[in-house]
């Protein structure tokens, strides 16, 4: 095995059986922020499960990502309250502006997008969360401002 960090995770699952797959995937994602092809291959060798099977299981669940998250990780709530208050249109706007689908990361690695079921902030709906900062009652129009704000912040950092 080439990756010592993964090795360390594997020691938590000494019997290397199939039922360890999902906890293992969760641990690896916790460590890397996503599931890389290399880590899936390593898990495949460890559990003696074909990588096609692991990829199949991992893509079944929304919780797993296959791209590293961007500098700004945008979580968009698609729960009931947010939906009623227009989160579908908001998602459409995010996709248009960032040109990525949920689960993906922009080519410049700045933005990644994730849709979540409910963030428990229904009173603020529709709500988005960027790197842990919540933004309430977002509209496609205010979204542009919010995204720009992060871009400016990033440009400021880069300039220093």
């Amino acid at each position: 095995m080439s990756n010592p960090a993964l090795e360390k995770i594997f020691t938590k699952y000494p019997c290397a059986s199939r039922e360890n797959l999902i906890p293992l995937l969760q641990d690896v994602q916790e460590k890397d922020g996503y599931l890389s092809e290399e880590s899936i291959r390593d898990i495949s060798r460890y559990l003696k499960l074909p990588s096609s099977k692991i990829y199949g299981v991992a893509t079944f669940y929304n919780q797993f990502r296959f791209h590293p998250i961007g500098k700004f990780h945008l979580q968009l709530c698609r729960g009931t309250a947010c939906h009623v208050n227009g989160s579908a249109k908001l998602l459409e706007a995010v996709r248009k502006i960032l040109k990525i689908e949920p689960g993906q990361t922009t080519k410049d690695k700045m933005w990644s997008l994730e849709t979540v079921a409910c963030m428990g902030a229904c009173g603020l709906s529709p709500v988005i969360c960027v790197n842990g900062e919540f933004h309430a009652k977002v509209t496609p129009k205010s979204l542009i401002k919010i995204l720009d704000q992060y871009r400016v912040q990033e440009a400021g950092h880069a300039g220093k």
Binding site: E37, K53, T59
Partner: peptide, 21 residues
């Protein structure tokens, strides 16, 4: 005993594909 392909994703988005598509 090869398992080159499996179901990927779920619901209406399901496809059959090789690992990493």
């Amino acid at each position: 005993g090869v398992a080159a392909i499996d179901f990927v994703r779920r619901g209406s988005k399901t496809v059959i594909a090789a690992a990493f598509e």
